[in-house]
Measured scan of single mutants.
Amino acid sequence: MEVRTIKVFTTVDNINLHTQVVDMSMTYGQQFGPTYLDGADVTKIKPHNSHEGKTFYVLPNDDTLRVEAFEYYHTTDPSFLGRYMSALNHTKKWKYPQVNGLTSIKWADNNCYLATALLTLQQIELKFNPPALQDAYYRARAGEAANFCALILAYCNKTVGELGDVRETMSYLFQHANLDSCKRVLNVVCKTCGQQQTTLKGVEAVMYMGTLSYEQFKKGVQIPCTCGKQATKYLVQQESPFVMMSAPPAQYELKHGTFTCASEYTGNYQCGHYKHITSKETLYCIDGALLTKSSEYKGPITDVFYKENSYTTTIK
């Protein structure tokens, strides 16, 4: 009895394709271990004539594949690729409408935090270190965002349907971005203890939790000093293409032309909904596939993004 075979390709990165001759009487799992086709788990399936010449994702289970996976995804987590594939199996079914010149995501599976993050990423200057993220990001900007969303979920250790947080998501993504040249110098002034300067680099240099107003941050924000008295913390120097200011959701007025974009969060910790506000020729609110415009805006804002380049204080 002759062994019926077909020729397929296996890959971990969709760049390096490895030619395989597979036995049609055995499952993919018996031949390769966990195997995925377009995100779908085909591990328990036997090869079919229609699979001839198709590319299958496999887990990096030998040295060659491990090197290829690390170079593309910059992670050695053995569960990463499987999590990416199972997320992709959902995100490829989502709709990605162009809204006001940006790629958004039609609401499904509690994905409003991903839509808000995706919209924000198209408006701030950011370059990702893992080629996987950078490639998928370019495709997302062009309207094909399924891979990018699935990668975000995998890097953030999230599953489809789980509630997510924009600030946490951005923080994970910033860790995989090139923020080497970003720098922030802060000064804390206390009447009792004097003053202390701190220099922050990388992710810490672009994120701040405690106030939404970048102007206020430049002037000074009140913080408790270690001595128990009130101290003032203010920005001395900022070198970065953008800054992200966050605070627990509270009524906040966004003035046209003073910011790049913002995240609105309605609801409580267990259950809520994100919308995205962007400042173009007027203010726009993007909620999944829905767009509304207004000249002014007041609502429960939790993150505001500002364009920056270089700032030095005039406070002496």
Rank of each mutant, 00 (worst) to 15 (best):
E2W: 09
E2F: 11
R4Q: 13
R4N: 13
I6G: 04
F9W: 09
T11S: 06
V12G: 10
N14W: 01
N14I: 06
N16C: 06
V21H: 12
M24G: 09
M26A: 10
T27R: 08
Y28R: 00
Y28N: 01
G29C: 08
G29P: 00
Q30A: 12
Q31V: 07
F32Y: 06
Y36V: 02
L37N: 11
L37A: 11
G39Y: 08
A40S: 11
D41A: 09
V42E: 04
V42T: 06
T43W: 03
P47A: 08
P47S: 01
H48T: 10
H48D: 13
S50P: 08
E52W: 09
T55W: 04
T55P: 07
F56L: 12
F56G: 00
Y57A: 04
V58A: 07
P60N: 15
D63L: 12
T64P: 13
V67S: 14
V67E: 07
V67P: 08
F70Q: 11
E71K: 07
Y72S: 11
Y72F: 09
H74D: 07
T75W: 00
T75M: 08
T76S: 14
D77M: 03
D77T: 02
P78A: 14
F80R: 00
F80Q: 02
G82E: 09
M85K: 12
M85A: 03
S86P: 01
A87I: 08
L88M: 06
L88N: 00
H90F: 14
K92Q: 11
K92I: 11
W94P: 00
K95F: 13
Y96I: 02
P97T: 10
V99N: 02
L102K: 05
L102E: 02
I105K: 02
A108C: 08
A108G: 04
D109M: 11
N110G: 03
N111H: 03
Y113N: 02
L114Q: 04
A115D: 00
T116V: 07
A117E: 03
A117W: 01
L119I: 00
L119P: 03
T120Y: 05
L121S: 04
L126D: 02
L126W: 03
K127D: 15
F128L: 02
N129P: 02
N129F: 06
P130G: 00
P131F: 00
A132Y: 03
L133R: 00
D135C: 07
Y138N: 15
G143F: 01
E144V: 04
A145S: 03
C149T: 08
C149S: 04
A150L: 00
A150R: 01
A154F: 02
Y155P: 01
Y155K: 01
N157E: 07
T159H: 14
G161H: 07
G164S: 08
G164D: 00
G164V: 03
G164T: 05
D165I: 09
V166G: 00
V166A: 14
T169F: 03
M170V: 05
Y172A: 15
L173I: 08
L173G: 00
L173P: 00
Q175S: 13
A177L: 06
N178K: 12
N178W: 02
N178L: 09
N178I: 04
D180S: 14
S181K: 13
C182D: 01
C182Y: 05
C182E: 03
K183Y: 08
R184M: 11
R184S: 13
R184Q: 08
R184C: 09
R184N: 04
V185A: 04
V185M: 07
L186Y: 12
V188A: 00
C190W: 00
K191G: 14
C193L: 03
G194T: 04
Q195Y: 11
Q196I: 12
Q197Y: 09
Q197R: 13
Q197L: 14
T198Q: 14
L200P: 02
L200M: 09
E204Q: 10
A205G: 04
M207F: 07
Y208Q: 14
G210D: 06
G210F: 04
T211A: 13
L212N: 06
S213D: 15
Y214D: 14
E215A: 09
E215S: 09
E215P: 08
E215T: 09
K218N: 05
K218A: 04
K218P: 04
K219R: 11
Q222Y: 05
I223D: 12
C225T: 03
T226M: 12
G228W: 00
K229V: 04
Q230L: 14
K233C: 11
Y234G: 04
L235G: 02
V236K: 07
E239F: 08
S240N: 04
F242R: 05
M244K: 02
A247H: 06
A250V: 08
Y252E: 10
E253Q: 15
L254N: 07
L254T: 03
K255Q: 13
K255I: 11
H256W: 08
F259C: 03
C261V: 05
A262Q: 04
S263G: 04
Y265R: 07
Y265Q: 14
T266P: 06
T266E: 15
T266F: 05
T266D: 12
G267F: 09
G267I: 07
N268S: 09
N268A: 15
G272K: 09
H273V: 05
H273D: 07
Y274L: 01
Y274K: 03
K275E: 07
K275M: 04
H276K: 07
I277P: 07
I277D: 00
T278P: 06
T278N: 08
S279C: 08
S279G: 04
T282W: 06
L283Q: 05
Y284L: 08
I286P: 07
I286R: 06
A289L: 04
A289Q: 13
L290S: 13
L290E: 15
T292Y: 10
S294F: 14
S295A: 12
S295P: 13
P300L: 12
P300Y: 09
F305C: 08
Y306P: 04
E308K: 03
Y311F: 13
T312R: 12
T313V: 12
T314H: 11
I315K: 13
K316V: 13
K316S: 12
